[in-house]
Write a protein that binds this DNA or RNA. Structure first.
Length: 571
RNA sequence: GCGCCCGUAGCUCAAUUGGAUAGAGUAUUGGGCUUCGAACCCAAGGGUUGCAGGUUCGAGUCCUGCCGGGCGCACCA
């Protein structure tokens, strides 16, 4: 149960009963910022007082008079200008906790209205190794998919590969010219990149080679079998690299429909938009116009007849609507594409292909180095993704060696993978995705403070306790859990707020709200851990505390899993 | 020139979308392991929320104008 929602409903009913003319007023129930004000508070009375011309504190009293406290709430208090302070009854806490402890979903309800959501994330360009700029989309997109799935929605995660474009003429011509002289290696993609560099260098100074590349591009676009086969080979090499990276990141896609998948639709898209009067010729090209100049023109066909990525994106939206009939399409890309997707979404709505479909652009900021500039190597290239992941794991491994020298080297390596990758993901997901992400190796992998390792460490410590205190039927009993210590009550309340954290994180895909919750849960737990001995306490108390430990571990594990972060039993 | 985003503690970020005394981490300082894992905990200091107005019971949040930064804006994706 989402407590905030439940209390909101009750306050809403109380307002309707007390003030029928203002039954639509928002209950404005939020978690109390300060424990001295209780567990929740309603801020409705102030605005209502103004609206009704009554004193806010009297309005608050009338709401309270109508409020169904049930077994949920203790007697409310009015404070300040008209805040209604609400406190959960200890008996309710004990009973609710016992109920959650026997629930596989840890109290998180399934969505009442399961929807189909297409999530577009990933999207690296083929024929190039992934780099640090490809990190955020899969991390954020995969977490969004996991959240939606957990809530019972049908999710289609799609990797919209950049697998089509003018560079393929140069790649095919270059591969024929330089292939024989560049030795085969274990990594065919690496070899392809080397060849591409030679080809671009030659094209810079050789007009006939440029013409050759243009001819190969034209043949490819016309469906020449040999060039198509070559192109497929390039894609296969690229995908094998991508899949390796996604596997290390623990990221999953349901579909991999690259830009090339939509080629056959493009001419039809332009024709359709023209016939509906949305697009028209301009300076030899075809553009979608906004006659009210709300948005700048959107070019969908070049004067040479070629289509652009706006055309592909419109075709992609149409395909997704036709195939999956989603209620929502979410596209996860960097923030620079905001204008582009404003145009695409608005054009799609006017086009009429996405009626009743919520179109959302979830955008993220640039990854910057500690100097505030994009992360680059000494030679000026963006840092390879593989190197980022290696570095994270190596640094984590050094810490594991230092802290837990008794573990086997296999265990150390496995832990380093989980901790290193988790550190990167958590660093990203624990802040607002819209802002730039300052990528500081030392801070992220310092493995202390508000980081994945802190949460993973809390989990490992709990598991250690549970191993030692292993008792049969730990989670089986639904008996209320009597909480006497403040630290126990604080932990219990935090545990009951998982549904609120998940709902908040899902509403606007603000994953940092779930991260923050998990960090706060860990902090509340470690405070409990310091002040409340578990294994050494009296049997009755011990049983309650073991259940608190067990539940905390399960919530941490589940919450981190929703963020795509693993846990380990020892670290 | 037009548009979007941003400016919060030394640094990196929050602030439940208009609520009470702006909070965390980090760094600094002091304290805590013969007791369930110290990758931890407890405490302290650190703020004119870029500046100036405005809206109202109440503004980091909303409106206006400046200052500073980032990113976009027709034949790349």
């Amino acid at each position: 149960m989402n407590l905030q929602l439940e209390i909101s409903l009750r306050v809403r009913r109380a307002i309707a009963a007390a003030f029928p003319s203002a039954a639509d007023a928002a209950p404005l129930v939020v978690q109390a910022q300060n424990a001295q004000f209780g567990d929740y508070q309603s801020n409705a009375a102030m605005g209502l007082g103004k609206r009704l011309g009554q004193k806010p504190r009297e309005v608050a009293q009338k709401i309270i008079d109508q409020l169904d406290l049930g077994d949920l709430l203790a007697k409310p208090e009015i404070a300040g200008p008209g805040f209604i302070n609400l406190r959960l009854r200890p008996e309710f806490l004990a009973q609710a906790l016992a109920a959650v402890a026997t629930d596989d979903r840890l109290g998180v309800p399934l969505a009442a209205d399961p929807r189909t959501v297409v999530v577009d994330f990933g999207g690296p360009n083929t024929c190039k190794p992934m780099h640090v700029g490809h990190l955020r989309s899969p991390i954020i997109g995969d977490a969004i998919c996991r959240l939606l799935r957990f809530l019972g929605h049908k999710v289609v995660g799609d990797n919209h590969l950049g697998d089509w474009g003018t560079q393929f003429g140069l790649l095919i011509a270059g591969f024929r010219r330089f292939g024989p002289e560049v030795p085969e290696s274990a990594d065919p993609l690496e070899r392809l990149v080397a060849i591409y560099k030679l080809a671009t260098a030659l094209a810079d100074q050789d007009e006939s080679f440029r013409a050759e590349a243009r001819a190969e591009l034209a043949k490819l676009q016309a469906g020449d079998p040999a060039n198509l086969a070559q192109w497929r080979q390039f894609s296969a090499w690229s995908l094998s690299h991508f899949n390796e990276m996604y596997a290390r990141l623990g990221v999953h896609f349901d579909e991999t429909l690259g830009e090339s998948s939509y080629n056959s639709m493009l001419a039809g898209v332009v024709e359709d938009l023209k016939s509906r009067g949305l697009a028209r010729p301009s300076e030899g090209a075809i553009c979608v116009f906004w006659d009210d100049e709300k948005l700048p023109p959107l070019l969908i066909q070049k004067s040479d007849g070629a289509f652009l990525y706006a055309t592909t994106d419109l075709a992609t939206l149409k395909y997704r609507c036709d195939r999956w009939h989603p209620s929502e399409i979410v596209i996860v890309t960097d923030a620079r594409q905001q204008l582009h997707f404003n145009q695409i979404f608005d054009a799609a709505r006017r086009w009429g292909i996405a009626e009743d479909v919520v179109l959302r652009h979830v955008f993220f900021g640039t990854i910057l180095g500690p100097d505030g500039r994009p992360l680059k190597t000494r030679s000026g290239d963006l840092v390879a993704l593989k190197d980022v992941l290696d570095e994270a794991e190596n640094r984590a491994l050094a810490v594991v060696r230092d802290k837990s020298p008794d573990l086997s080297s296999e265990e150390m390596a496995a832990i380093a993978r989980v901790v290193g990758i988790g550190a990167i993901k958590y660093a990203d997901l624990s802040q607002n995705h819209q802002s730039d992400f300052v990528f500081n190796w030392d801070k992220m992998l310092a493995l202390q403070g508000n980081t994945a390792p802190y949460l993973q460490y809390a989990y490992a410590r709990i598991r250690s306790i549970l191993r030692k205190g292993n008792e049969p039927g730990l989670a089986a009993s639904a008996a209320p859990l009597l909480l006497t210590e403040p630290a126990e009550a604080a932990l219990a309340l935090k545990l009951l707020r998982l549904p609120e954290a998940i709902d908040a994180a899902t509403d606007d895909f603000r994953l940092n709200l779930l991260s923050n919750y998990l960090f706060e849960l860990s902090a509340v737990f470690t405070t409990f851990y310091e002040s409340c001995p578990v294994l050494k306490s009296d049997p009755a108390v011990r049983a309650v505390r073991l259940r608190l430990c067990d539940l905390t571990a399960r919530v941490l594990k589940q919450g981190l899993d929703l963020l795509g972060i693993d846990v380990v039993e020892r670290m």
